Simulated assay, not measured.
Amino acid sequence: MRALIALGGNAMTSSTGEATVAAQEAALGTAAERIADLVARGVDVVITHGNGPQVGNLLVKNELAADVVPIVPLDWCGAQTQGTIGYTLTKRLDEAFARRGLDRRSASVVTRALVDADDPGFTTPTKPIGRFLPEAQARRFIAEGQNWQDMGERGWRRVVASPEPREILDAPAVLNLVRAGFVTVAAGGGGIPVVREDGGALLGVEAVIDKDLAAALLGVLVEADVLLIATDVEHAIVGYATPQARPLGTIDVAELTAFAAEGHFAAGSMGPKVEAALRFARSGGRSVITSLDHIVEAVEGRVGTQVTAAPQPAHAEPHQSRP
């Protein structure tokens, strides 16, 4: 079996959201232990991850040093965080493999994701990134060509495009590494967003790609059987924060699509995870949404929200957590 594990932001920061070096090292170490347990079961693993807190840190450095050194563009920020997180995670993975006596190694690929230059997100950017600033400071960066919006009492915040990923350009390299026995980290932060110019050259753009949607695409390209979206809850929930709230266990694409259409999953949190799970399941794979602590049982089909392409048998209870 081959599984693509998509690590959420909670896997790379402390329980309180701290993104210090020590907190990130510790959190990635915990993630590595869980993944090594899965590898010890004989599962081939590809890993992708978010990078929001890490890119946020780089943006603050950009702002504070803007009058001293050139501002680093957003595609460079993505590349830098892929390198840092990939290095740290592979280091921790190799240590975890050695402790288990596993003859496995890890590798990390700085990965590009192709987007359309005419994606509507570039015309009307809406994805907020970075910190809030007073208007006067925000206008300093508007003069540099950035888009900032007035967010009310909290101040101004930068907004960028979040285009659809169309192709994970380095997926063939990732697949070759996996076939060679490497546990491979790829497409961090959804991939470095690039567009193809008329002459065929690739150009980095000021955008961020949803890492879960990129994971669904990468999963197909690296021939994964399972896409596991690791988050901070054990299941997706319908009727969240209402008396009718209930966890979703095994569920087919048609039922989950209906729940999504009814607005059960917030656009800024569970929504993209559910959409990614649906896309991968429609391709013929199995998707799972669950917490990092349960990834072994989830890949084995025993916990989490398990999304399948086919309807469940009539006697099944698709809306309840499996025991």
Rank of each mutant, 00 (worst) to 15 (best):
residue 5 I to M: 06
residue 6 A to I: 03
residue 8 G to N: 07
residue 8 G to V: 02
residue 14 S to L: 08
residue 14 S to T: 08
residue 15 S to A: 15
residue 19 A to G: 09
residue 22 A to E: 14
residue 23 A to I: 05
residue 25 E to P: 00
residue 26 A to P: 00
residue 30 T to E: 14
residue 37 D to S: 09
residue 38 L to K: 06
residue 42 G to L: 02
residue 42 G to C: 01
residue 47 I to H: 09
residue 50 G to W: 00
residue 51 N to Y: 05
residue 53 P to H: 05
residue 54 Q to E: 13
residue 57 N to P: 03
residue 60 V to C: 07
residue 67 D to Q: 04
residue 68 V to N: 10
residue 71 I to E: 09
residue 76 W to V: 15
residue 80 Q to L: 14
residue 87 Y to V: 08
residue 103 D to F: 06
residue 109 V to C: 11
residue 109 V to N: 12
residue 109 V to W: 02
residue 111 T to R: 10
residue 111 T to I: 11
residue 113 A to K: 05
residue 115 V to G: 06
residue 116 D to N: 12
residue 116 D to Q: 07
residue 117 A to Q: 09
residue 118 D to I: 00
residue 120 P to K: 06
residue 121 G to R: 05
residue 123 T to I: 11
residue 127 K to Y: 09
residue 134 P to D: 14
residue 136 A to S: 11
residue 140 R to H: 11
residue 140 R to L: 08
residue 144 E to L: 12
residue 147 N to R: 15
residue 147 N to L: 13
residue 150 D to W: 03
residue 150 D to I: 05
residue 164 E to R: 15
residue 166 R to E: 09
residue 171 A to D: 10
residue 171 A to F: 07
residue 177 L to W: 10
residue 179 R to D: 15
residue 181 G to Y: 01
residue 184 T to Y: 00
residue 187 A to V: 05
residue 189 G to L: 11
residue 191 G to N: 09
residue 193 P to L: 05
residue 197 E to W: 02
residue 198 D to R: 13
residue 199 G to R: 04
residue 201 A to Q: 15
residue 202 L to I: 00
residue 203 L to W: 08
residue 207 A to T: 00
residue 210 D to S: 02
residue 214 A to Y: 00
residue 214 A to Q: 07
residue 215 A to R: 02
residue 216 A to P: 06
residue 217 L to N: 07
residue 218 L to S: 11
residue 222 V to P: 00
residue 225 D to W: 01
residue 228 L to A: 08
residue 231 T to F: 07
residue 231 T to R: 08
residue 232 D to M: 04
residue 233 V to L: 02
residue 233 V to I: 12
residue 234 E to N: 14
residue 234 E to C: 08
residue 235 H to P: 02
residue 236 A to S: 09
residue 240 Y to S: 15
residue 241 A to P: 04
residue 243 P to V: 03
residue 244 Q to N: 14
residue 246 R to C: 04
residue 249 G to I: 00
residue 249 G to A: 05
residue 250 T to D: 15
residue 255 E to C: 11
residue 260 A to D: 14
residue 260 A to V: 09
residue 264 H to K: 08
residue 267 A to S: 14
residue 269 S to W: 08
residue 269 S to D: 04
residue 272 P to N: 09
residue 272 P to H: 05
residue 272 P to I: 10
residue 279 R to G: 04
residue 281 A to G: 08
residue 284 G to Y: 01
residue 285 G to W: 03
residue 287 S to F: 02
residue 289 I to Y: 04
residue 290 T to R: 06
residue 291 S to G: 12
residue 292 L to Y: 02
residue 294 H to M: 11
residue 294 H to W: 13
residue 298 A to S: 01
residue 299 V to C: 13
residue 300 E to H: 03
residue 302 R to C: 07
residue 304 G to E: 10
residue 304 G to R: 01
residue 308 T to N: 14
residue 309 A to E: 15
residue 311 P to T: 03
residue 314 A to R: 12
residue 319 H to S: 11
residue 320 Q to K: 12
residue 322 R to I: 03
residue 323 P to R: 15
